[in-house]
Amino acid sequence: MNRQHLNTWLLRHLQVALASLGRLCRAPLATLMTAAVIGIALALPTGMHVALSNVQQLAGGWDGTATLSLFLKQEVDEKQAMQLANRLRAHPQLATVQLIDPDLALEEFQRLSGFEGALQALKKNPLPTVLVIEPHPQQSTPEAAEALLAEFNQLTEVDFTQLDLQWVRRFHAITEIAQRGVMVIGLLLGLAVLLIIGNTIRLEIQNRRSEIEITKLIGGTDAFIRRPFLYNGFWYGLSGGILAWLLVTLSLWALNEPVERLAGLYHSEFDLSAIDGQTLGFLLLGSTLLGLFGSWIAVGRHLSSIEPS
């Protein structure tokens, strides 16, 4: 009996869901307008979130991990530098140690900087050997990085050390503020979506007043009467979410070319990344839940006030 029961229940829900979708499709303009309002409201925080994660991605290696640069003394030769690098590789708190050979560095500098002529005039390579060190992620807090820095300053081979800690801290602070801002805007616009859907459903309830009255007269339960309105909210939310995704994707597509050109000027391989699966899932789930919740509130408030007379 249970299986039979479940099948009938599912079938009935499917019927109501499709009937609700059909009803919305028969008034395409009105439906599209509601969905567009929801879509635009949701596209704003989503777009900002995507932009922010792009910025974080652009910051790449600096994000989260502080990179230390150890500039070795001029008199340290290649062999000694290698030995130091190997010693540091055994250090338990370090993730990677990269040795930058002065000749290679000069070559790259010549290639990228445009000072080729000037550099060739130099009699000897002025660049020191550099060890670029990345601590383990759990050691990448500013305090731990500073402690490491102090430790490496003691090494005899090291001329001086550098850590872009201020920069890392500022960047973290800025992205935190931006993230918080996106969250606040997202919450406000989510609330707006809730109100939009609630109001739309309220109008629908009013338009279908006689239908509700008659359904109550012939023994329709509250759940039965509520169901089509909840599905309406569901479809509004889902279509709004899809529209928001389309809007953000279109905007990214429009931005991609100029961003690529700008990145090219900085010799960066940076590429605008689209909405990732997780964000898309969150967007669609969130918009659908907002739709359901908005219509639930409207239905709860207005359905009980309609009684057959």
Binding site: K216, L217, T221, D222
Partner: peptide
């Protein structure tokens, strides 16, 4: 609602839904 299913009601003004066919009205 379950009580009302046991009591059929007929009204002077019919109380039919004009956006549904006769079949759909009766099927409600």
């Amino acid at each position: 609602p379950y009580h009302r299913r046991e009591v059929g009601m007929i009204f002077q003004d019919h109380r039919l839904l004009n956006d549904r066919t006769v079949f759909d009205n009766v099927a409600m």
